[in-house]
Design a protein around this nucleic acid. Structure first.
Length: 482
RNA sequence: GCCGAGGUGGCAGAAUGGUUAAUGCGACAGACUGCAGAUCUGUUUCCUGGGGGUUCGAUUCCCUCCCUCGGCUCCA
């Protein structure tokens, strides 16, 4: 197991990571409430923690990664009511879309997506435990957590209750003793989905599902909890309070990781601000790998600005600089096979290639500095560019050696994966070749006007040509419309 | 108001108690090319929010101020 450090939001310092029972790592990340289409901000958090899980797996840890799905809550009920759809069905529909987006983005490290409503017995048991231990009280069919009974409440966010209170939006919730008390079990209003409980029909509060799920799947204490920075207070604070109060064991979580917000037009991208950009739509327009690269090109804790018409264009240019040599190596290897004889690499190049993945691991092992690792890949791309013209002379194992750092990028960062666009390329290739051979003949006859006309026509069709000596390569300028 | 995260070149964005502060994008020039593109080479000069302090030396550590963003029970 590789040693690595991580910034823990609770202690506010970078700490060496030590699992409770090595090599196992229990990892939980707050998922979304799928009441609407996912936006670019959601994608960032998902990709950030995907890389964390991928890296841990590579480094010899056995990760069990759980991401919950809040499939019952006020927004779902409201949205379902507007559309005349059962909220649970609505949640399921949006979750399927999310899952598809994750698949496209290469987020495949999540082992399990538990739905809140599948954990009603655990939720009820936890609420009952809190009531019987005096940490929670029923009122008007609901149950509230008594924050005053949990003195360390606020430790994660640094919030002090007296200070927080001034800015608190005090909702008219009858029976609540203090404004900071949060709801564990919410009495059902007529027509709402509800479950039976000792306090009457109702549904779980937002915070309790996570600790009910982790209690069941990861135990009373586990290693790593992630989520967006906006969830730190009150959500994660509430998780700590209710879980530690219910089980009597602490700490609930050994390492808290919070991902920085994606900002758009100077503010956090969010539904309530109304500045959202669709995740699916952006993936469709730029391709999943460019979106992924955009996220990982910044440190996960920093705020990341999304500028329409600029950020992803820039990311595409930068990503292509890596993907192009990576792709040519993969193609060459597919053609030649690793067994083919040929020239070997000079010793210093081979040493650099085989050593780089390890140093990239070291870089990433310092609080998941993906940007610094990417910088290392750029340096390698430059070296590989020098070898691209000589690929056919190289042995299969030499090409494979050149590819090693890019394989690291694929395994850990999830970049350089074949996408639908490259599948489309295979279909188009024979057709494009027909035009190319006509153009090559024209060029041989120095009929450049004709050759340029063919090049221009292909460009209109979305295909850009690049002459490399006698050979001509082609690239799709835009994603195929689907 | 309180709590937290940030302020780095034209832009994005890393790192570090110490010779020229990564990397990418963009721009400019050269090589290559029939041209273009891609690639390579070079250039992009005084780039670390302001002011104090600690230090032989700070962008890095400490204090303070300013600015931006997030949270303060809807949030990834």
């Amino acid at each position: 197991m590789r040693r690595f450090t991580v910034y823990d939001s609770l202690s506010r310092e970078i700490r060496l990571f030590v699992p409770i029972t090595p090599p196992k790592v229990g990892m939980f990340v707050c998922g979304l409430t799928p009441y609407d289409e996912a936006h670019l901000g959601h994608g960032r958090t998902a990709v950030v923690f995907d890389v964390v899980a991928r890296a841990l797996a590579r480094w010899g840890y056995r990760v069990f990664y759980v991401q919950n799905v809040t499939n019952i809550d006020d927004r779902l009920i409201a949205r379902g009511g507007e559309r005349g759809i059962d909220p649970l069905k609505l949640a399921e529909r949006h979750f399927l879309a999310w899952h598809l987006a994750m698949e496209t983005l290469g987020v495949r490290s999540v082992n399990y997506y538990p739905f809140a409503t599948d954990y009603l017995p655990e939720i009820l048991a936890q609420v009952e435990a809190l009531v019987s231990k005096g940490f929670a009280y029923p009122a008007e069919g609901s149950v509230y957590f008594d924050v005053a009974r949990f003195p360390s409440y606020g430790a994660l966010s640094g919030q002090r209750l007296d200070a927080a209170r001034t800015g608190t939006r005090i909702e008219a919730e009858p029976g609540k003793r203090a404004p900071e008390d949060f709801v564990l079990w919410k009495a059902a209003r007529p027509g709402e989905p509800s479950w039976e409980s000792p306090w009457g029909p109702g549904r779980p509060g937002w915070h309790i599902e996570d600790t009910a799920i982790t209690g069941r799947l990861l135990g009373a204490r586990y290693d790593l909890h992630g989520g967006g920075l906006d969830l730190k207070f009150p959500h994660h604070e509430a998780e700590i309070a209710q879980a530690e109060a219910a089980t009597g064991e602490r700490p609930l979580v050994n390492y808290w990781m919070h991902a920085g917000m994606l900002q758009f037009k100077g503010e956090k991208m969010s539904k309530s601000v109304g500045n959202v950009v669709s995740l699916q739509g952006t993936i469709g327009r730029y391709g999943p790998m460019v979106v992924r690269f955009f996220y990982l090109n910044a440190h996960y804790r920093s705020p990341l600005d999304f500028v329409e018409g600029k950020s992803l264009e820039e990311a595409r240019e930068a990503y292509d600089r890596l993907a192009q040599p990576a792709g040519r190596l993969a193609e060459a290897l597919a053609r030649s096979g690793p067994e083919r004889a040929g020239r070997e690499l000079p010793a210093e190049v081979a040493t650099a290639a085989t050593g780089l993945p390890n140093s990239l691991d070291e870089t990433l092992a310092e609080d998941f500095n993906s940007r610094a690792a990417i910088a290392g890949l750029f340096g390698w791309a430059r070296t590989v560019q020098e070898w691209l013209p000589h690929l056919d002379a190289l042995s299969g194992s030499a090409i494979s050696t050149l590819e090693a750092p890019f394989r690291w990028g694929r395994d850990v960062l999830g970049l350089f994966e074949a996408t639908d666009a490259s599948a489309g390329r295979e279909r188009l290739d024979p057709l494009v070749r027909v035009v190319l051979s006509a153009r090559t003949r024209a060029r041989e006859r120095k009929e450049f006007a004709e050759a340029d006309r063919l090049r221009a026509d292909l460009l209109t069709a979305g295909i850009r040509l690049e002459d490399r000596g006698a050979e001509t390569e082609w690239h799709a300028v835009r994603e195929p419309e689907s």
